[in-house]
C-alpha cells in the first residue's frame, strides 16, 4: 500500500521491478515475429504496449505468462523473469504462473456459468478458500475491486453471459483478480466496448494500479496516454522506444514513434 501511495504521488517515485525480459525472440515456424525485446515491467505502473497490427506487441504480452506455449509452431527464446525467477525454469508450474500473471482478453469471455461461479472458479482450483464463507468473501472482494459488485450483488446466480459487454469484461477482470495475481495482462480490454463501458474499464485500471503490475496492449493511443505511466512502442517485431508515457506522447525521441502516434505511419 505504501508503494501505491508513493507511485500515485508523482511519476518520479521509486519503482520496483516486477518482470524483466531480456532479448526475447518469438518464431512462428521460420518467421521471426519478435526480434529480441528487452524491457522492464515495474510493479507500481501501468505499462502500455502500442504499435500497428503485426508489430509483435500481443505476441510479447503472451510471452509474459507463457501463453505462446499453447500456440502450435511458436518458439520463444530469451529470458523472462518474474521477481527474479526464470519463468521458463522447468521447476516453474505454468498453472501457478498464470495465476500470478493473469490475463484479460479483448473479447469478454465469461464461463457459461453464474456470476458467482465465474469468480469462484479460480480460487477453488487453486484451493484459496476452505469454506463457503471464505469463498463468499473472495467473490465479493473481487467483484468490488472490479467495480461490478453494486451492479450484480442481487443476482449473483444469473449467468455471466447475460451481462452487458462492459460488465462481462469487468467480470473477467474480477475473475483474474480472484486468484491474487501479481501482474495483470490486458490485451485490448476495451476495444469491443462502447465509450461509457470503456471509461469504466479505464477508471478500474486506475483503481487497480499499484495493487497489481498492469500491462495493457491497446490500439487506442488516447487510451494508452490516459491509463499508463510507461509506454512501449513496437514496430515490425522490435521495441522501438520505451519511456514515460508523458514523454512518449508529447516529445517522442524516435522518428518512427512520432510518425505512428501522430498518424503519419505508412
Amino acid at each position: 500500500m505504501a508503494a501505491h501511495e508513493g507511485a500515485a504521488a508523482d511519476g518520479a517515485a521509486e519503482t520496483t521491478l516486477k518482470m524483466t525480459a531480456r532479448d526475447v525472440r518469438v518464431f512462428y515456424g521460420a518467421f521471426e515475429a519478435l526480434k529480441g525485446v528487452s524491457i522492464d515491467v515495474t510493479k507500481e505502473d501501468v505499462t502500455a504496449f502500442i504499435g500497428p497490427s503485426g508489430c509483435g506487441k500481443s505476441t510479447f504480452l503472451r510471452c509474459l505468462n507463457r501463453m505462446n506455449d499453447t500456440v502450435a509452431g511458436a518458439r520463444v527464446e530469451g529470458r523472462i523473469e518474474l521477481d527474479g525467477q526464470d519463468i521458463h525454469d522447468p521447476a516453474m508450474d505454468v498453472v501457478q504462473l498464470r495465476a500470478r500473471v493473469g490475463m484479460v482478453f479483448q473479447k469478454p469471455n465469461p464461463f457459461p456459468k453464474s456470476i458467482y461461479e465465474n469468480v469462484a472458479y479460480g480460487p477453488r482450483i487453486h484451493g484459496l478458500a476452505a469454506k463457503k464463507a471464505d469463498m463468499d468473501v473472495i467473490v465479493e472482494k473481487s467483484l468490488r475491486r472490479a467495480g461490478l459488485w453494486d451492479e450484480v450483488k442481487d443476482r449473483l446466480s444469473d449467468s455471466g453471459t447475460a451481462l452487458s459487454g462492459g460488465q462481462q469484461q469487468r467480470l473477467c477482470i474480477a475473475r483474474a483478480i480472484a486468484v491474487n495475481p501479481e501482474v495483470i495482462l490486458m490485451d485490448e480490454p476495451a476495444s469491443a466496448l462502447d465509450p461509457i463501458a470503456t471509461a469504466k474499464i479505464e477508471e478500474l485500471i486506475d483503481d487497480l494500479r499499484g495493487r497489481y503490475a498492469i500491462v495493457i496492449v491497446t490500439h487506442n493511443m488516447q487510451q494508452a496516454a490516459r491509463v499508463s505511466q510507461k509506454t512501449a512502442f513496437f514496430h515490425l517485431g522490435s521495441l522501438v522506444e520505451y519511456g514515460d508515457t508523458r514523454q512518449i506522447f508529447t516529445n517522442p525521441r524516435e522518428t518512427r514513434t512520432k510518425d505512428y502516434i501522430t498518424g503519419r505511419y505508412g
Binding site: 506522447f249 512520432k258 501522430t262 498518424g263
Partner: peptide, 10 residues
C-alpha cells in the same frame, strides 16, 4: 477532432 499528439500537439 484529431486529438493531435507529440509535435502536432505542440
Amino acid at each position: 477532432v484529431r486529438a493531435p499528439m507529440a509535435d502536432d500537439l505542440r
